[in-house]
């Protein structure tokens, strides 16, 4: 039943979306008040934000995961950090948008820009990365660590040479999953980076960009000619779903591929 629902949604959008997809749609700028042309700037914008946010969230998330799992003993501090991470994960995305606007856009004077949007999205993705890193580290067998210590390695060496390589595939899965999540978010970028329409591609990290989810929102609710933009809306929804789908499948495949490999060893 649930799966049927999923398929109804997917099929509905795919069947209508796939008709408008062609090379030109993916690689040209919107034209004539967005009733014609492609969605290139939105695709590029989404990928920019995806990588921008990861540039910030991935290192911090992984480091933070390592610290809580490898260095901290069970204590009030650890459970405090945990619950803070959980709290951050539970904050609605629109509140992230408000926060991003207040801090990055207004207080730090970044304006609506890639950097403000990336940082906001990065904060949103942080809990996911921290959690998956912790899970990944936990699943590393304790015997590997004790073995490494027995050979005289320091804690840092053990983490770098033994623990991380084993946990890496799972951490990577977390990264990919959060990239998928970030690519679909609209509310946080609404007031921090998203542009309604830009005639040019961004040049610097202080430029605004268009993004697929916001573009879809704009296409369905604004625009001077709803009938003419409808096919483009379907196409945009299709591309967006495909990106999310590919990232999800990739994560899944990675997880399986590595778990098989580990077993074989």
């Amino acid at each position: 039943m649930v799966v049927a629902m999923l398929f109804v949604i997917l099929f509905f959008i795919c069947i209508r979306g796939i008709k408008v997809i062609n090379w030109e749609f993916l690689t040209t700028m919107p034209k004539d008040g967005m009733t014609k042309g492609g969605i290139l700037p939105a695709i590029i914008g989404t990928f920019t934000l995806m990588f921008g946010s990861m540039l910030f969230a991935f290192p911090i998330g992984v480091l933070s995961g390592i610290y809580t799992n490898e260095y901290l003993k069970e204590s009030w501090f650890k459970s405090f950090l945990r619950s803070m991470t959980n709290n951050l994960a539970g904050i609605p995305s629109i509140v992230f948008g408000l926060f991003g606007m207040a801090l990055f856009v207004n207080k730090l004077h970044f304006g609506d820009s890639i950097i403000a949007g990336s940082l906001t999205l990065g904060l949103l993705a942080l809990p996911v990365i921290i959690r998956t890193t912790e899970e990944a580290l936990k699943s590393v067998d304790m015997s590997l660590r004790t073995g490494s210590y027995a050979l005289g390695a320091t804690k840092l060496q053990t983490i770098r040479r033994v623990v991380l390589p084993v946990a890496f595939p799972n951490i990577l899965t977390g990264l990919i999953l959060s990239m998928g999540r970030v690519s679909g978010e609209t509310a946080p970028i609404l007031f921090t980076v998203a542009a309604y329409f830009l005639p040019k591609l961004p040049h610097s990290i202080f430029d605004q960009v268009m993004a697929l989810p916001y573009h879809l929102y704009v296409l369905t609710t604004s625009g001077t000619d709803i009938e003419a933009t409808r096919p483009i809306a379907y196409g945009t929804a299709f591309v967006l779903i495909m990106i999310v789908l590919i990232f999800n499948l990739m994560a899944n495949w990675l997880r399986r591929y590595f778990s098989k490999k580990v077993k074989m060893n």
């Binding site: 609506d112 542009a195 309604y196 329409f197 830009l198 005639p199 040019k200 430029d207 605004q208």
Partner: peptide, 8 residues
């Protein structure tokens, strides 16, 4: 001349 136009 380069003009950046955005809504909001």
């Amino acid at each position: 001349t380069s003009i950046m136009v955005t809504g909001g």
